[in-house]
Simulated scan of single mutants.
Amino acid sequence: MRVFGIAGSSGMGKTTLLEKLIPVLTARGLVVSLIKHSHKAIEIDRPGKDSYRLREAGCQEVLLLGLERWALMHELRGAEEPDLDYLIDRIQNCDLVLVEGFKGGEFPKLEIWRASEGRAPLHPVWPGIIGFACDAPVPGGDALTQIALDQVEAIADFVQKRAVLR
């Protein structure tokens, strides 16, 4: 299993790029999984549903199985967020785990950056950023690879070559 990160400030288009990148990688025969870190209190279950009610009743984990997918929900209940290694251990065998977020992680990352958003890049503050997918030259990013956002095949090549073995 190899690991590679996608970084960028909110609104830079990380999910938009991932929606284009993942089909390219899977067309190359890779089994791809994704771990996304959010700073928001996410809710993937719905109030009133059995799984929600049982989780609210105190279950630490609820595994929900349906006809087309299954999901494991784990309640932190005040505990610290688990580290990335712990979460990767829960991913089924695959070729590539893409990681969105986890700014402190020491794994290679591609930063998504758009000049039109008017924000400074995360590089060099975030560790592991080794390149940019961008819509214009990145200020202070001259030493790193810069790939145009619309060059998805080139971005896929970059990710495949630089993903690290776990």
Rank of each mutant, 00 (worst) to 15 (best):
residue 77 R to C: 06
residue 136 A to Y: 01
residue 45 D to K: 06
residue 143 A to Q: 13
residue 61 E to G: 00
residue 34 L to P: 00
residue 65 L to V: 14
residue 47 P to M: 01
residue 139 P to N: 02
residue 134 C to G: 01
residue 98 L to N: 08
residue 121 P to S: 05
residue 38 S to P: 01
residue 32 V to E: 10
residue 154 A to R: 14
residue 117 E to R: 15
residue 109 K to D: 11
residue 20 K to Q: 15
residue 22 I to E: 07
residue 32 V to M: 12
residue 130 I to S: 01
residue 8 G to H: 12
residue 51 S to Y: 07
residue 126 W to K: 07
residue 125 V to S: 12
residue 159 V to W: 10
residue 160 Q to F: 01
residue 95 D to N: 15
residue 118 G to L: 11
residue 99 V to A: 08
residue 55 R to L: 15
residue 98 L to M: 08
residue 25 L to K: 08
residue 128 G to C: 07
residue 3 V to M: 14
residue 104 G to Y: 11
residue 123 H to P: 03
residue 59 C to S: 15
residue 13 G to E: 05
residue 49 K to H: 08
residue 45 D to T: 03
residue 101 G to S: 06
residue 10 S to T: 13
residue 150 D to W: 09
residue 72 L to H: 00
residue 110 L to W: 11
residue 151 Q to H: 13
residue 100 E to Y: 12
residue 83 D to E: 14
residue 16 T to A: 15
residue 149 L to F: 06
residue 118 G to N: 08
residue 53 R to P: 01
residue 40 K to V: 09
residue 100 E to R: 10
residue 55 R to S: 14
residue 33 S to L: 01
residue 157 D to C: 02
residue 132 F to V: 00
residue 70 W to M: 13
residue 38 S to D: 15
residue 25 L to E: 11
residue 100 E to C: 07
residue 125 V to R: 14
residue 64 L to N: 01
residue 79 A to E: 15
residue 53 R to F: 02
residue 92 Q to T: 02
residue 5 G to I: 11
residue 10 S to E: 10
residue 55 R to F: 11
residue 17 L to N: 08
residue 19 E to P: 00
residue 124 P to Q: 02
residue 43 E to M: 06
residue 114 R to M: 02
residue 152 V to H: 08
residue 62 V to G: 02
residue 107 F to I: 14
residue 64 L to E: 05
residue 52 Y to C: 03
residue 121 P to W: 06
residue 133 A to Q: 10
residue 42 I to N: 05
residue 68 E to F: 00
residue 119 R to P: 02
residue 11 G to V: 07
residue 65 L to H: 07
residue 163 A to F: 12
residue 124 P to W: 01
residue 132 F to M: 03
residue 121 P to R: 03
residue 52 Y to W: 15
residue 110 L to D: 05
residue 26 T to N: 09
residue 57 A to H: 12
residue 24 V to W: 09
residue 165 L to G: 00
residue 7 A to G: 13
residue 74 H to M: 04
residue 118 G to C: 10
residue 76 L to F: 12
residue 93 N to R: 12
residue 128 G to P: 13
residue 92 Q to H: 11
residue 150 D to K: 05
residue 33 S to R: 15
residue 12 M to F: 05
residue 68 E to K: 03
residue 21 L to N: 08
residue 22 I to Q: 10
residue 34 L to K: 13
residue 104 G to V: 04
residue 18 L to R: 09
residue 156 A to Y: 09
residue 13 G to T: 07
residue 38 S to F: 01
residue 124 P to G: 00
residue 103 K to I: 09
residue 49 K to F: 05
residue 43 E to F: 06
residue 131 G to F: 06
residue 86 Y to L: 01
residue 124 P to F: 02
residue 63 L to Q: 06
residue 62 V to Q: 04
residue 54 L to E: 04
residue 9 S to E: 10
residue 138 V to P: 10
residue 152 V to I: 15
residue 135 D to K: 02
residue 148 A to N: 08
residue 63 L to V: 13
residue 82 P to I: 03
residue 36 K to R: 14
residue 108 P to T: 05
residue 22 I to P: 12
residue 87 L to K: 04
residue 91 I to N: 01
residue 34 L to F: 02
residue 106 E to N: 13
residue 10 S to M: 14
residue 50 D to G: 03
residue 139 P to W: 03
residue 28 R to E: 08
residue 165 L to E: 14
residue 26 T to S: 14
residue 134 C to F: 05
residue 14 K to A: 06
residue 128 G to L: 13
residue 21 L to E: 11
